[in-house]
Simulated scan of single mutants.
Amino acid sequence: MSKSTIETPLVEVRGLRKSFAVKKGWFGAAKYLRAVDGLSFAIRQGETFSLVGESGCGKSTTGRLVNRLLKPTSGEVWFNGQNISSFSDNQMRPIRKEMQMVFQDPYASLNPRMKVKELVAEPLLIHTKLSVKERDKLAQELLETVGLSSIHAERYAHEFSGGQRQRIGIARALSVRPSLIVADEPVSALDVSIQSQVLNLMQDLQEEYGLTYLFISHDLSVVEHISDRIGVMYLGTLVETADKDTLYDRPLHPYTQALLSSVPVPDPNQKRERIILKGDLPSPVDPPSGCRFHNRCSACMDICRQQEPVFREVEPGHQVACHLYNEA
């Protein structure tokens, strides 16, 4: 059951598209990689909405579009009732403090020349008028909030383990009390034992601060632990969305079923039938006609090769883009 108590979405994405020019075609015509191609979803206040899918499906690009690190080619991103899709840098500045990001690599995202207290307090320097003493005090408090000690404030990032660095990144994201945190593969670089600690920390902080998460991951075990709702991406589009329990109990799209069949079962006496996908992920520069998954789908029909399926609700809160579920 979702933790959300407010029906109006904090984030709403409508027909979002992002293309990158990658090379020249015949006669000098540019070719475009369609990283995100027509996404629509909403994230309610206080919930965790996760995006999952294979590498290259557009998850990370979507996260950067939502917090406007990238400008969309077309479509709209609404945040807290405002269409921020075409906002200038000056218009985005007061909104930046409301949407922060936790990156995949906890070392690459931290400046090695800055002390930890400076790293955590840097957003405060930009978005507040606090004095140096006030910023340092708040940085120490935030470090303690994420399970570190205030004595760590004088150290540098290279003196910490991967899990500790990610805690520093989370403390930095929390410094300006954001409404939304976009977490892009925040635990994929960590050991399994450390992953659970960081995930539990994120859940505790969500309850304490009323945070909303857009959580991006390829690891379905991690996503099951932290999510309220899940969106499954394939080649720049959403193929299925549902609440966590529904998606894991009754996956509808053949791609979702294949992904879930690959999740390890903790019981050695229990076996799960593995669905092996044939073929490689098509190029987003030249995606297949019709359903983008048809050339890897065991349930492919003639209509799948010709017509792109409509993303539609098949039961309350459960949406899928698949011709197997067309209305009669």
Rank of each mutant, 00 (worst) to 15 (best):
C57P: 02
Y255K: 00
R113D: 08
D136I: 13
P316H: 12
Q100H: 06
R96A: 12
K133P: 07
M101N: 09
E313K: 00
E327C: 12
L190W: 05
Q166T: 05
I230N: 02
I230L: 09
L130N: 06
G53T: 00
E313A: 09
Q164P: 07
A173G: 01
K133T: 13
S193I: 03
Q257D: 07
L247T: 08
R44I: 09
R167Q: 12
L247E: 10
Y248C: 06
F160G: 04
E327M: 13
E308I: 07
P266F: 11
H127N: 10
R44H: 13
S85V: 01
V22T: 15
F160I: 08
L33R: 12
S289F: 08
I226T: 08
L211R: 03
P282H: 06
D37P: 00
M233R: 08
E47L: 01
D219T: 06
L148D: 05
Q319F: 15
C322V: 08
Q82R: 15
V198F: 03
S179H: 13
L201A: 06
D136Q: 14
G53H: 09
I194Y: 10
S261A: 03
K117P: 02
R177Q: 14
P106V: 12
E313F: 10
G28I: 02
V192C: 03
R272I: 11
S217Q: 10
Q104H: 00
R34W: 13
N67P: 05
L211Q: 04
N111G: 09
P288M: 04
L259P: 04
L199I: 15
F103M: 11
L211V: 08
G58I: 00
E7Y: 11
R177F: 12
S188Q: 11
R312P: 04
L199G: 05
F20H: 05
G169Y: 01
T48K: 00
L142Q: 09
L119D: 03
V36T: 01
F293S: 04
D204H: 13
A242G: 10
M301D: 12
K24C: 07
D243W: 00
L252D: 04
S261K: 01
Q270D: 09
G236D: 07
L69Y: 10
S221L: 12
S227R: 00
D245R: 15
E308P: 08
G46E: 11
I226K: 08
E47H: 07
T48Q: 03
L277A: 10
E313M: 04
D136E: 15
S193E: 01
E308Q: 15
Q319P: 03
L65P: 07
V222Y: 02
V182T: 01
V263R: 00
C300E: 14
Q195F: 11
V146Y: 07
R165E: 11
C304E: 06
G279W: 01
S149W: 08
A299M: 14
R177W: 04
G75R: 03
V182I: 15
L124H: 08
L220H: 04
K3W: 13
L324N: 06
G56L: 02
E327S: 14
T8A: 15
V239S: 02
P123S: 05
V11G: 03
S298D: 12
S188K: 11
M233V: 00
K24L: 14
D37N: 15
I151V: 14
H323A: 05
D245H: 14
D105C: 07
R272S: 13
